[in-house]
């Protein structure tokens, strides 16, 4: 939930990385943590269970500096992707300003991607939010696996599966190599701040 302090010209927003279990949400945040050290405000907190699965959430606070005369801070979260953590997932989503949906490019995760997107839509709806209107970026992760001969889906197929109706911004990435991760974050921030500008008109004219 964005927090504005117009007197001090501060703005804080929340971006949530959503997606099926094991798609690479935590790896996204870990990469951002390493690659954007300067902008990271403090530590990354990960609450995991057995096998490095996220149990509650990952949390990474960032300080982006001045944007249009405002000090912008952003809190990055990941949700636990595994199906049976649905109530935690919903709780973490609360107050979200922007979403990165991380989809798994592996063939075998095709249905899980779709189910997770549907779950996202339902949870947003429960909070009175609309998946078509919320700032949303789709990330097709694990593209590096293409070089290893592992069966992965083509980008076209993923677009068709996940983005035919949504028509959200989408991009390929690999959280392991870091390719596309910075771009994903930038795109999400851009959309989120634009949307907050529309709603709250915070930028200096």
């Amino acid at each position: 939930m964005a927090v504005f302090n117009l007197k001090k010209r501060e703005i804080e927003c929340k971006i949530v990385f959503y997606g099926p279990g094991r798609c690479g949400k935590t790896t996204n945040l870990e990469y951002i943590f390493r690659a954007y050290k300067k902008q990271v405000e403090g530590e990354m907190v990960s609450i995991n269970t057995e096998g490095d699965r996220t149990l509650f959430f990952d949390f990474l606070p960032m300080e982006l500096g001045k944007i249009k005369g405002c000090d912008v801070r952003v809190q990055l979260f990941t949700v636990p992707g595994q199906v049976h953590y649905s109530s935690t997932r919903k709780l973490v989503l609360r107050g979200v300003d922007g979403i990165v949906f991380v989809a798994d490019s592996l063939d075998v995760r095709r249905e899980k991607n779709m189910q997770s997107l549907k779950d996202l839509q339902q949870n947003l709806k429960d909070y009175g939010l609309n998946i078509f209107k919320i700032p949303l970026v789709l990330q097709y992760n694990k593209r590096d696996l293409a070089n290893t001969g592992m069966p992965i889906m083509s980008l076209e197929k993923m677009e068709k599966d996940l983005n035919r109706q949504l028509k959200a911004a989408s991009l390929p990435a690999s959280a392991v190599t870091g390719e596309g991760i910075g771009k994903t974050l930038q795109e999400s921030l851009k959309l989120t701040l634009q949307s907050l500008q529309k709603q709250f008109n915070w930028a200096q004219k």
Binding site: R22, G51, L106, V108, R109
Partner: peptide, 21 residues
Amino acid sequence: KSLLQQAKLYRSQGLMGEAEK
């Protein structure tokens, strides 16, 4: 061999059901 490679990858990524299949 290819199936075993896949299984190994899935397992390393925590995709246990997929690996087992």
